[in-house]
Design a protein around this nucleic acid. Structure first.
Lengths: 160, 160
DNA sequence: TATTGTTATACTCTATAACTATA
DNA sequence: TATAGTTATAGAGTATAACAATA
C-alpha cells in the first residue's frame, strides 16, 4: 500500500517562489481578482454571457433609457464595442432599443421583463458564487475589504 | 466671467448608477484592479514591457534555472505562450536559455546582470506607483488588505 | 461642425493542435 | 510512449478610423 508506486515516479514539481512579486500589493490583488473572475466566468458562461454583457444588462436595469454612448462610458469601453454588446442583448430580447423623441440619433435602452427575470436569476447565482469565494471572510471583514478597495479605486480617478 | 458660456452648452451628462453591480464585492474588486492596472501599464510600457513579461522576469530572478514549463505554470499561461515571453526576454538579453546537462529537452532560464538591473529599476518604479495608488491607505490598512485578498485567493484554490 | 451609432478592419493576447527532439 | 519546447493557426475581445444620419 505504498503511495509511491514503483513504476510511476513522483512528479518532482519544485515549488516556484514568487517572493519578488508578492511584495507588490497589486500582485496579491491580481491573484484574488483572477480567482474570483475564473469562478464567475463559469457561472456567466452557463447563460452564454460575458462579464461585460452582464454588466451592461445590470446598468441598463439601473438606468432606464440610458443611451449607448453613456453605457459605453459606464462600461469603460468604446462606443463601437458597445454596439456588439447591445446587439447581443437585443437579439436575446433582454433589452430594447427605443427611439428618443427629442434626438433621432440616439437610442434609449430599456430592460425587458425577460431581461429582468434573467438579471434576478443571475443576482442569486452570483450571490452564491460570492458567498463561496468570500467564505474565509466574516461579514465585517468583507465590508472592510470593500471600503479599502473603494479607496484604492478613488486614488486612480482623475479627481484623486 | 460667467463660466457657463452662452454658445457652449453645459454637457448634461447624467450620472450613471451602478447600484446593482456595486452590491457585488467582485465589482468593487474589479474597479480597484483596473485602476491599479491602468496606472501600472503606463510604467511598464515605458520599458516596452507587458505585465506578463515583467512577471516572468521577476519569477526567473527568484527561481534560478527554472524551466519554461514551470514558468508557464507559475504565470498560469500555456507553454506555447511562454515561448513568446521568453523569446522577448532573451532577445533583450535580460535572461539566458541554458542547456540542462541531465535533460537536453528543457532549458534552465537565468536572469542576466542586465536583467537584474532592469528588475531593480522596475521594483523602484512600481514601488512608487503603489505608494501613489495606495496613498489613501495607512500601512496597517494595506497589510489588512493583503491579508484579506490572500484569503479570497485561497478560496479559489482547489485546496480551498 | 459636432454627435450618435455603425461598420470594417486591425491589433493584442492567449489558446489549441500538430510538430521535433529528446527521454 | 511521454515530455519540453516550438510553430502555425485561430479565437476572443477590444480599439481605431471612416462613415451615415441627425443635430
Amino acid at each position: 500500500m505504498n503511495k509511491r508506486q514503483t513504476g510511476a515516479r513522483p512528479i518532482p514539481r519544485r515549488a516556484i517562489s514568487d517572493t519578488t512579486l508578492r511584495r507588490f500589493t497589486g500582485y496579491n490583488l491580481k491573484l484574488a481578482f483572477t480567482a474570483l473572475s475564473d469562478d464567475l466566468h463559469g457561472i456567466l458562461g452557463g447563460h452564454q454571457l460575458r462579464l461585460t454583457t452582464f454588466s451592461a444588462l445590470a446598468l441598463i436595469a439601473d438606468n432606464a433609457d440610458i443611451a449607448q454612448g453613456e453605457l459605453a462610458q459606464a462600461l469603460r469601453i468604446e462606443r463601437s464595442s458597445a454596439v456588439v454588446v447591445v446587439d447581443d442583448l437585443e437579439d436575446r430580447e433582454l433589452i430594447t432599443r427605443n427611439r428618443v423623441p427629442g434626438d433621432r440619433r440616439s437610442y434609449a435602452l430599456r430592460i425587458t421583463l425577460k431581461g429582468r427575470r434573467l438579471l434576478s436569476r443571475l443576482e442569486k447565482e452570483i450571490g452564491a458564487h460570492e458567498a463561496r469565494m468570500f467564505r474565509n471572510l466574516t461579514a465585517s471583514e468583507r465590508a472592510i475589504l470593500i471600503d479599502l478597495l473603494n479607496r484604492v479605486e478613488a486614488a486612480g480617478d482623475p479627481a484623486g
